[in-house]
Simulated assay, not measured.
Amino acid sequence: MLRDNETIQQNQYKIVIYIRNTSWEQPEGHRLHRNVQILKSKYERAGYEISKVYSEPSLELDKNERPVLQQLLKDSASGLFGVVLVWNVFTLTSNGDELQRIERELAGNDVELCSATEEFDTSTKEGRDVFNCMCSLLQHEHSTTKQDIPLSALANMIVKRRPEREASSDDNI
């Protein structure tokens, strides 16, 4: 029989997918099914195990009534998996503060949050800065306008330009 720590270590590399319909215009399930199939195919070909798909039934639920997300967070605390994969961060929430709270809770359970369309790595200082910038951008216009640039790419550009701006403002002193 495996001890709890051994079970958690075995599940560390298991991936779960979280999806929900984030658009009133999309037919229920059409895009979700396609995204799940793409994610499963891509990551299983790379040798990862997709152990479960958490699918939130509808956007019509109050944002505080997301039972599937709550179950995912509960399961993460039990050590059932090591990675939560989303299509993009909007899948989890369009609220930057809530996204940070979800990521912190997952990280506190030793679970990594990954996005198939957004590049960020919260295990490094620069990656944490990019993620925080993404969350800040979610609070503003980026989330309400259609963008051709991924949120993480925009956040990366902002974070990488900060030292330049700070140095030039020091020159003006």
Rank of each mutant, 00 (worst) to 15 (best):
N88A: 15
R101V: 07
S152M: 04
V130I: 15
E60T: 12
C133W: 02
E112G: 06
C135G: 02
R101N: 13
L151M: 10
H140K: 14
E49V: 12
R162P: 00
G82R: 01
L85I: 11
L73M: 13
L151D: 04
E119S: 14
G96P: 00
F81H: 01
I102Q: 05
V130R: 00
D148N: 15
E65N: 12
R162H: 05
V86Y: 00
Q100N: 13
V83M: 07
E49P: 02
T91H: 08
N95H: 04
D75L: 09
N132L: 08
I149V: 15
C114N: 03
F120M: 01
S143L: 03
Q139Y: 08
L69E: 11
Q71H: 14
L72C: 10
N109V: 02
R101E: 14
I50Y: 09
F131N: 00
I102L: 07
V130A: 06
F81N: 01
Q100F: 06
L92P: 02
I149A: 09
T145F: 10
I50K: 05
L106P: 06
R104W: 11
L69Y: 04
R161Y: 15
T124Y: 04
K125R: 15
C135S: 09
L99S: 05
V130S: 00
K125C: 13
A77N: 04
D121G: 08
L151N: 00
E141K: 06
L69N: 01
T124M: 11
N95R: 04
N156C: 07
A116N: 12
N88T: 12
L138M: 15
S78Y: 08
N64L: 11
S51K: 09
S76N: 07
T93I: 07
V111Q: 03
Q147Y: 06
S152R: 01
Q100E: 14
